[in-house]
């Protein structure tokens, strides 16, 4: 699971009013190289919840992303490379995602989050 996906995920358990962003418990990460594409990054950037993204990156030990971004930085190559790496190349392979409201854990195994809810959670 990439951080881009993490930025999309939310806990939909019954009674949860704000299940975003999910906390991350990481026991195994993998880095898989992806071709750098600055256009893609500029397109995707407005869809990212930046604070959640930076916090998630930090929880995985990726500390070189700025807390705040403005559009001008999208022309800065160094920034784009850091963004690219954290967004697309780092994968959570083993661990869990944690609902911020209830603490419900969603396991991540072999890179696959299991977001299924139990019958009493829907």
């Amino acid at each position: 699971m990439r951080l881009l996906t993490h930025n999309m995920l939310s806990c939909n358990r019954k009674g949860v009013s704000n299940g975003f962003p999910l906390g991350i418990e990481a026991s195994k990460l993998e880095v898989k190289e992806v071709d750098f594409n600055s256009d893609f990054l500029r397109h995707i950037y407005p869809k990212i919840e930046w604070k959640a993204f930076v916090d998630a990156a930090k929880s995985l030990g990726l500390n070189d992303l700025p807390e705040h971004v403005d559009d001008s930085m999208l022309e800065d190559d160094d920034f784009l490379h850091s963004f690219h790496h954290a967004l697309l190349e780092v994968h959570l392979e083993e661990g869990a995602l944690i609902c911020p409201e209830t603490g419900r854990r969603f396991p991540v195994n072999r890179g696959i989050p299991n977001m299924l809810l139990n019958e009493d959670e829907v």
Binding site: L9, M115, L116
Partner: peptide, 16 residues
């Protein structure tokens, strides 16, 4: 990029 989820309870934030 995939996850296990139910189509009736998609685990994504609204409008994502």
């Amino acid at each position: 990029e995939v996850l296990i989820a139910d189509a009736l309870f998609l685990p994504y934030r609204t409008g994502v």
